[in-house]
Amino acid sequence: MPSALRLRLGLTAVLAASAVLALGAFYAGDSEPGPVDARLGTAAYDVGPPWRNVALALDFLGEPAGATALVVTLMAGCLLLRRPRAAALVAAGATAAVVTATLLKSLVGRTIHGDGNLSYPSGHTAFATALALAVALAATGRLGLGRTAASALVLGAALTAGAAMGWAQVALGAHYPTDALGGWCTALAVVPAAAWLVDRTADRMTGRAGGRTVERRTDGTTRRPPGRRPANRPADRVEDRRAGHTADRNAGRTAHRTADRTTDRRPGRSTGARTGRIAGRTPGRTADAVHREVR
């Protein structure tokens, strides 16, 4: 997860989880559409071709066969782009969203078209939204977007995918509109947590390997972990040898300059000798001028 989006996605996850719980408590044990469902669902129920065919195609992507094919395709694309954390987030985010939605259905107990058809929240909508969030998080790092642009991309992708799948479920009569809303909020609540967990686990595994100084997040961005580099690495040994050679050269130069100053100050050497040496080094200057300078 991009560090710039952690706070925003964290707050979004908290609000989404609150919405899921509030709607679940309101519609617990119910089997009839609520006031919101009656208003929103009237325009979407019983659509005809070609929109019904579009709804059926979207619905297939949420079924076990279609969902598996979609997840495998996205993971393969992430691995080809060398984004293993993004591939892990695709699998973890989709799985977390579907499992959470399934558990909530049993807890809430809302039904549609009979007692055996649990409806809240919509698992199809949660699945589609989770995939869109995972892909958008990977794209933010790949494109190098700023905080505002990245937030717009992530939330826009989640809204588009959730609205499309939610409309398909309502149009086919499989869910109420509030079921789709609950599925959308479920994905917004669990995917940021899944992204944090993937990054945390990958960081620990990279730290145990001990061979990398740069770590890659689920969105493709990198960070340098704290602490010193592992000891006895070839690069460290080369730097140590270079530092040793530099220290030896500096020590040699210092000793040479010290010896020159000591020689100049030895007893027995007259001011005239020093004057002659300086005059020899400074063409065009008279011995008297140099003698006065030395004195």
Score class of each variant (00 low, 15 high):
W167Y: 08
A202T: 13
W196Y: 11
N117L: 04
R110W: 06
P230N: 11
A189L: 05
A134S: 08
R6V: 10
E239Y: 05
R216Q: 15
E215N: 13
T282W: 12
L9A: 06
D37C: 06
T275C: 08
Y120H: 08
R208M: 10
N250P: 00
L197N: 02
L133C: 01
V154S: 02
A193I: 10
F26R: 15
A76D: 07
V108F: 02
R292C: 00
A209M: 07
G41N: 06
T129F: 01
D288H: 12
A259F: 02
L9I: 00
D203K: 01
A25W: 12
R39Q: 15
L145Q: 01
C78N: 07
A247K: 03
G227K: 03
Y120P: 02
P234N: 10
L133G: 03
S151G: 14
R233N: 08
G284Y: 05
T221D: 10
A149G: 05
P192I: 01
P230G: 11
H256K: 14
L131C: 07
L131T: 05
A152G: 12
N117E: 12
E32Q: 14
V72I: 15
R285A: 14
D248N: 09
D248A: 14
V98Y: 05
G272Y: 13
R8Y: 11
A259H: 06
T95N: 04
T206A: 15
L155K: 03
A43K: 02
E32A: 14
G244R: 14
T68N: 02
T178A: 05
C78V: 00
R224S: 13
L58S: 04
P50F: 02
L137K: 00
T258M: 09
M75T: 10
P33M: 06
A163E: 11
V135R: 00
T12S: 13
A97Q: 04
R110K: 08
L107P: 00
R237G: 11
T125E: 07
G156H: 07
S106I: 04
G210I: 12
A251V: 10
A25I: 06
A91G: 09
A171Y: 05
L188S: 02
M1E: 12
A94P: 11
K105H: 07
P33I: 08
L104T: 11
D46Q: 13
L7Y: 11
E215P: 00
A65L: 15
H124A: 03
A88R: 09
R242V: 11
R147H: 14
G109Y: 05
A193E: 02
A101H: 03
S31P: 09
H175C: 03
N232T: 00
D115P: 13
E293F: 14
D179L: 02
P64D: 04
E239M: 14
M1G: 14
R228A: 15
A279P: 02
V99Y: 03
G173W: 07
T42Q: 15
K105S: 07
D115K: 14
P267H: 09
A94F: 06
R223I: 00
A126F: 09
V294M: 10
R204K: 12
E32R: 13
G29I: 07
K105L: 10
G284R: 00
H245Q: 13
R242A: 08
L70N: 05
T222F: 14
R223G: 00
K105C: 09
A289G: 04
G207S: 13
T148Q: 13
R281G: 10
A157P: 03
P33F: 01
G144C: 01
L188M: 05
V14M: 12
